[in-house]
């Protein structure tokens, strides 16, 4: 089986709003994929469905061939758009917490990354800036040896230098069979590291392509194409 995430005629609506309109999508293993779309296009809804935080109204979503549940949470490492960590906890406590929760959590990897980003493991989350908090969360997520990493806006709040380090961390840390799904608006920053992009708009998949195919066929960057397709 070559796909890690699969949607079959997936529908999700909220009162007065069709968030996903019969989406069919296959995300293969071993790829870094960008999920790109304007605000309110359905990116986060799709991600929440993949993590079992929402349930579909119709259709199916499968992670590693299974419907979202306990078993899929073992293989998916998820960075949500909002923090869910307790801010009285120190980084060290959180690392222990994650270590207890997930069998595939690699503590030494986490400490290694903290050191590279000059974050003191004794510090509490409460005392940290927004960007540092985001870095800590991303470190926790990337320190798991998962099969699918789902990152919802992972680099929005961090400075450009740390952004580069984080992207290097993502390409350096995922194993060959793992897939990374990144949702972001900062296309220019991520497009170098992406294999594929998925454009989503108003609950529909508008385009799926490899980055190099877009550059070859359109003669422009993914960022420029995005600006063209979603021109307001």
């Amino acid at each position: 089986m070559d796909s890690i995430l699969e949607c079959r005629s997936l529908v999700k609506y909220f009162p007065g709003c069709l968030a996903l309109n019969s989406v069919n999508l296959t995300v293969p293993k071993g790829r870094i994929v960008g999920l790109l779309g304007p605000n309110g296009s359905g990116k986060s809804t799709l991600i929440k469905l993949a993590n079992g935080l929402l349930t579909p109204n119709a259709g199916q979503i499968l992670v590693g061939g299974m419907a979202p549940g306990v078993e899929t949470k073992k293989i998916v490492s998820y960075l949500p758009e909002r923090t869910y960590l307790n801010d009285w906890m120190s980084v060290q406590t959180m690392i222990d917490y994650f270590g207890d929760f997930y069998e595939n959590f690699n503590k030494s990897k986490a400490y290694d990354m903290l050191q590279r980003l000059h974050i003191n493991p004794g510090d509490r989350l409460k005392t940290m800036s927004k960007g540092t908090k985001e870095k800590v969360q991303l470190i926790l997520v990337m320190s798991r040896e998962a099969q699918l990493y789902i990152l919802d806006e992972p680099i929005g709040g961090v400075d450009p230098a740390a952004r580069d380090y984080i992207l290097d961390t993502i390409i350096g840390n995922y194993s060959e069979n793992a897939t990374v799904l990144i949702s972001t608006h900062l296309i220019t920053d991520v497009e170098k590291v992406l294999d594929d992009v998925i454009f989503i708009n108003m609950g529909n998949i508008v385009l799926t392509s490899t980055v190099d195919d877009i550059r070859e066929k359109e003669g422009k960057s993914v960022d420029s194409l995005f600006r063209e397709v979603f021109k307001c």
């Binding site: 870094i32 580069d164 290097d168 390409i171 350096g172 170098k192 590291v193 992406l194 294999d195 190099d212």
Partner: peptide
């Protein structure tokens, strides 16, 4: 491949 990809900040598959 991995080291070269990291050095160029590009995807290892590319």
């Amino acid at each position: 491949v991995r080291d070269m990809a990291a050095e160029a900040s590009v995807n290892p598959n590319t």
